[in-house]
Simulated scan of single mutants.
Amino acid sequence: MKKILMIGTGGTIASRATSNGLDPQMTLDEILTYIPDIAKICDVDTIQICNIDSTNISPEHWIMLVNTIRENYDKYDGFVICHGTDTMAYTAAALSYMVQNSAKPILLTGAQKPINKESSDSKINLFDSFLYATFDGTSGVQIVFNGKVILGTRARKTRTKSFQSFSSINYPYLAVIQDGHIIQYINLAKAEAPVFYDTLNTKVGLFKLTPGAEADVLSYMLERNDAVIIESYGVGGIPSMPQYHYLEVIQDWIAKGKTVVMTTQVPNEGSDMNVYKVGYNLKSKVPILEAYDMITEAVVCKLMWILGQTKDPEKIKKLFYTTISNDILY
């Protein structure tokens, strides 16, 4: 049987009810007692790197995960990470950039209800994850949740309570898992050896454009970060009426070496700044980057990874538009 390393970070799946709400308290060994059938499909070892609500997940935890996977990579056939759902998509995206070209599966899963609850989705999500981890056709970073396998750079939490928590944005599901059967739609190419990264620059901000928002807020964020993502409306653009001065702010800060990326608040289909004048004028006057079909979670994590490697604007641009784990296909 294949050997799988189960890595614990906490989350709802490991939570117990307390007088103050759900709190991660269960160990991985406790969790595994609820799913004895996993022992029939693979050998499992466990490592608990933390036991926290995923609201508390930070880039430091991503580095811990990468180091754990790197230190154990040659010992196991795959990895299953138990993680809270709130930031799971960010962690999946981060690992996609920090562990590139993995021929072995690195799967994230969790649950909307704790595993000790009668109606929990925990048991099926975990079993599906281990089943998929032993499948010969899988490699790289993915989320396995509610019978769906989602590429790590394309996952977004789209429901707060339903078991169908995650959607694949601008990309098909890699596979579905039904009644213990894997139906594989897309086979990813397997690389010979993984490349690990453990350096991130976390000075990446996200500015959500709202009606009446002042450009001074964007300027404040650019002053304190090395890169800022503007999450605009529709296909992307900035307010251009005389009372706004977004163009000047963006021009000034890019001239000072800051990176600015335009993306959209709309979940599907991506940005296209050439469609409207409010986008075209900005893109034609300043060297702003555009996310196109990339999801915000991936843009945030990719910028952290890129800025951890270089500060050169041309290299940043080249890396940003380099497709990694099918994150940008426009």
Score class of each variant (00 low, 15 high):
residue 222 L to K: 10
residue 289 L to D: 02
residue 56 N to Q: 13
residue 18 T to L: 05
residue 21 G to D: 00
residue 319 L to P: 02
residue 154 R to P: 00
residue 197 Y to M: 04
residue 189 A to Q: 12
residue 139 S to N: 15
residue 265 Q to T: 13
residue 120 S to V: 02
residue 116 N to G: 01
residue 156 R to F: 03
residue 262 M to A: 01
residue 119 S to M: 02
residue 270 G to N: 10
residue 161 K to A: 12
residue 260 V to T: 10
residue 309 Q to N: 04
residue 300 V to M: 15
residue 26 M to D: 04
residue 212 G to T: 01
residue 130 F to S: 07
residue 34 Y to Q: 07
residue 113 K to H: 02
residue 204 V to D: 11
residue 192 E to K: 04
residue 84 G to N: 01
residue 215 A to N: 12
residue 15 S to T: 00
residue 281 N to P: 00
residue 45 D to I: 00
residue 137 G to Q: 12
residue 279 G to P: 11
residue 44 V to F: 08
residue 222 L to E: 12
residue 198 D to N: 13
residue 281 N to I: 11
residue 224 R to P: 00
residue 229 I to F: 01
residue 294 M to W: 05
residue 93 A to K: 08
residue 170 N to H: 08
residue 218 L to S: 05
residue 24 P to H: 08
residue 146 N to C: 13
residue 70 R to K: 15
residue 127 F to S: 02
residue 80 V to F: 10
residue 259 T to M: 05
residue 223 E to Q: 15
residue 175 A to V: 10
residue 300 V to C: 08
residue 176 V to D: 01
residue 65 L to S: 07
residue 179 D to P: 01
residue 264 T to G: 13
residue 22 L to A: 03
residue 96 S to V: 13
residue 38 I to L: 07
residue 96 S to E: 12
residue 35 I to Y: 11
residue 165 S to R: 07
residue 289 L to E: 01
residue 286 V to M: 06
residue 165 S to A: 15
residue 162 S to E: 15
residue 3 K to G: 00
residue 233 Y to I: 07
residue 264 T to R: 11
residue 188 L to W: 00
residue 248 E to W: 00
residue 3 K to L: 01
residue 260 V to I: 05
residue 7 I to V: 14
residue 324 I to C: 09
residue 69 I to W: 05
residue 45 D to N: 06
residue 38 I to H: 02
residue 224 R to H: 15
residue 29 D to F: 01
residue 276 Y to C: 03
residue 217 V to A: 12
residue 241 M to D: 11
residue 142 Q to Y: 06
residue 202 T to C: 09
residue 212 G to H: 02
residue 24 P to Y: 08
residue 200 L to H: 10
residue 258 K to Y: 13
residue 267 P to Y: 08
residue 24 P to E: 03
residue 242 P to R: 08
residue 215 A to I: 04
residue 238 I to M: 07
residue 17 A to Y: 00
residue 324 I to Y: 09
residue 96 S to T: 03
residue 232 S to L: 06
residue 202 T to F: 02
residue 205 G to I: 06
residue 194 P to E: 14
residue 102 S to L: 10
residue 194 P to A: 14
residue 301 C to G: 00
residue 134 T to H: 03
residue 154 R to F: 06
residue 246 Y to G: 05
residue 233 Y to R: 14
residue 320 F to L: 03
residue 167 S to H: 11
residue 132 Y to R: 10
residue 33 T to M: 13
residue 300 V to N: 08
residue 226 D to W: 12
residue 130 F to G: 03
residue 198 D to C: 11
residue 136 D to E: 15
residue 91 T to Q: 04
residue 307 L to N: 07
residue 83 H to A: 04
residue 1 M to W: 04
residue 83 H to Q: 15
residue 263 T to V: 11
residue 31 I to G: 03
residue 278 V to F: 10
residue 139 S to M: 06
residue 21 G to W: 00
residue 87 T to H: 01
residue 83 H to G: 06
residue 87 T to Q: 03
residue 28 L to D: 07
